[in-house]
């Protein structure tokens, strides 16, 4: 669907760069299920491309198709100039792939894991000693070089996994939810490494369930039920949000939810602790109405103000819109 439009919206920063990942009508079926449905993707060299979407949207299948690990049902694609259907082994030399359930060889040390992958990717011994020093430094793993992988913390394991996929200096890095289940500090460190790669013009395609991470990408593709629904810069996606966000902090959260649920002009409500985020058609018009309605029911307001739209609101609103859209034709 909206993919022909998204082509035009590729940010100008990248437009002078060549397209390095391209798919046309990429489709993968598992029996009767269409996991990836005619995906058109065009990613330019040096992009940091985020793939978001609910579980089961087809993110992992898409990434596995791009690495050549899964056979294409129909459509075509190319990475770094190699054809997905016919040259999967050539593609593997040019990419670094970190599977969702990446697990290292737990009995091997940090350095041994790195060396193992360097040998499989034909990195010379000299290059290995240079790059491993750099990568270990980079991932703050230098003091742990001789520690067994299973004695590292979860965050350190992820950083080591990333280092393993970088040891052959791939042109394209494909990361499948690399930060899921990682503590916030390690997550931040992980992204700082990615940001440096982005500066080095390595193309990165990353899937993530975290919206703050999507915000750090140069472009985000939102997948839903196997299709690419939106593909744009984070700013543009936030801008697509129809309506504005109002932040309310009532003194009685329970009562406020009931009152707000009956008000006109409120498109979405999301709770954040004691606060409620309301997606409204117009903040300027609705804020006085909300204040009046809450006061009328005896609910005190500690704070009410317009809030900037976050990726999360845009994302949830888009998904709910799609789900509702899909339900209606069935009912009629």
């Amino acid at each position: 669907m909206g993919d022909s439009q998204s082509e035009e919206l590729i940010p100008t920063v990248n437009s002078n760069q060549q397209v390095i990942i391209e798919t046309q009508g990429l489709t993968r079926e598992f029996g009767d299920t269409v996991a990836v449905d005619s995906l058109d993707l065009s990613i330019r060299r040096g992009e940091l491309f985020g793939l978001v979407g609910p579980d089961g949207a087809g993110k992992t299948t898409t990434l596995r198709l791009l690495t050549g690990l899964l056979k294409i049902t129909s459509g075509s694609g190319s990475l770094a100039g190699f054809d997905l259907a016919t040259q999967p082994e050539e593609i593997k030399r040019h990419i670094g792939y970190m599977a969702q359930e990446f697990s290292l060889y737990s009995e091997l040390t940090v350095l041994e894991n790195l060396r193992f992958f360097s040998e499989l990717f034909d990195v010379s011994a000299e290059d290995f000693s240079l790059r491993s020093e750099h990568l270990l430094e980079f991932a703050s793993l230098s003091p742990f070089r001789n520690r067994r992988a299973d004695h590292l913390s979860g965050g350190m394991q992820k950083k080591l996994a990333l280092a393993c996929t970088l040891i052959h200096e791939p042109e394209i890095l494909i990361l499948d939810e690399p930060t899921t289940g990682v503590d916030p500090i390690s997550r931040r460190e992980f992204w700082d490494i990615l940001a440096e790669l982005y500066d080095n013009r390595t193309t990165v395609i990353i899937s993530t369930p975290y919206m703050d991470e999507a915000d750090r990408c140069s472009r985000v593709g939102l997948m839903y039920e196997g299709r690419m629904v939106v593909c744009d810069t984070p700013e543009a996606i936030r801008g697509q949000l129809e309506g504005e966000v109002v932040h309310v902090r009532p003194d009685d959260w329970q009562a406020a939810r009931v009152v707000l649920g009956e008000l006109p002009g409120i498109l979405e409500t999301q709770s954040y602790g004691e606060s409620i985020h309301l997606l409204v058609d117009s903040a300027e018009r609705r804020i006085p109405e909300i204040e009046q309605a809450l006061k009328g029911k005896g609910v005190g307001i500690k704070e009410i103000r317009p809030a900037p739209a976050r990726m999360e609101e845009a994302f949830i609103s888009l998904i709910r819109g799609l789900a509702a859209h899909e339900d209606t034709p069935e009912k009629t």
């Binding site: 593997k92 792939y97 599977a99 359930e101 499989l120 990717f121 034909d122």
Partner: peptide
């Protein structure tokens, strides 16, 4: 089971 095979499959071995 542990996903290391998927990782190996994505290398030129």
């Amino acid at each position: 089971e542990h996903g290391t095979l998927e990782q190996l499959m994505a290398t030129p071995i």
